[in-house]
């Protein structure tokens, strides 16, 4: 199933974009209202509920024993999984994860993995035999656009909230988080760039680019999506938008 975007709505959003305006009256570099609630799920080691406008995502952390990958005997494991729950949108269907769900999980995974947000070197119990696996489960509850940024923010907020497992094999004083990657998505409509596309804008956009940055403003992960293209200048402009907004979002992590 797909969302029907009528020609009238498409034209309206595209015409507004040309004038630097948006359907919900935001400015081009204005993120929707963001709230971060940490620890709502007590059965998880860490959790966070993030709202971006009407979009709602909850992330839960589980830390469990696992056998390490043969080529990484001295590393803990990170597993990111995302569920586009059928309760979140009329277009989401039950069943195996869709390609959108898998892309979402992988983009969030990359931001956390490549920034070394979790010190996986420390999550070894016995080399080659027993390590800690960190599961990040992303649960999309209400889909009103820009799931990537909401999910990435929920994931890092949940990690920062994570308590060590109650297990005698755990010897670290706390959960080893060392970086705070934050993803920001910029959409392109009618040759104009706008941050944090809402659902209507996602239905119309030519392309999007998600840039995850860390504290010093450097990039740790990027994902371009959609069939449209970006010029070099646009990429640099998008990076600048993502860097500035990334700092704002990071401030919400406390």
């Amino acid at each position: 199933m797909y969302e029907i975007v009528s020609s009238v709505r498409r034209d309206y959003i595209a015409d507004l974009a040309r004038e630097g305006k948006r359907i919900d009256t935001r400015t081009m570099d204005q993120f929707r209202e963001v709230s971060v609630e940490v620890g709502p799920i007590k059965s998880a080691q860490g959790s966070a509920l993030v709202k971006v406008g009407k979009t709602q995502v909850v992330a839960g952390i589980k830390v469990e024993h696992a056998e390490p990958f043969p080529d990484k005997p001295d590393n803990g494991m990170l597993v990111v999984n995302a569920e586009l729950l059928p309760l979140a949108s009329p277009t989401f269907e039950p069943g195996r994860p869709s390609e959108n769900a898998i892309e979402l999980a992988r983009v969030v995974d990359r931001g956390i993995r490549e920034s070394n947000a979790i010190d996986l070197d420390k999550l070894v119990i016995k080399s080659g035999e027993d390590v800690w696996a960190v599961f990040i489960d992303i649960y999309v509850l209400d889909h009103d656009g820009n799931l990537i940024d909401a999910s990435a923010l929920a994931a890092i907020a949940a990690l920062l909230n994570a308590k060590p497992p109650e297990d005698e094999a755990w010897t670290l004083p706390e959960f080893p988080i060392q970086k705070r990657p934050v993803a920001v998505t910029v959409a392109k409509i009618n040759s104009k760039l706008m941050i944090d596309p809402c659902l209507d804008e996602e239905g119309v956009m030519d392309a999007r680019i998600t840039i995850a940055t860390i504290e010093d403003g450097s990039i740790c992960a990027v994902q371009k999506g959609g069939i449209g293209c970006f010029s070099r200048e646009e990429l640099e402009q998008a990076y600048e938008m993502a860097r500035a907004e990334g700092a704002e979002l990071r401030a919400k992590l406390g």
Binding site: A44, K62, E64
Partner: peptide
């Protein structure tokens, strides 16, 4: 459906 993090031991999705 149960969330993977809804119980003590992580439940496999699906």
């Amino acid at each position: 459906n149960m969330a993977p993090f809804s119980v003590d031991e992580r439940k496999r999705p699906g």
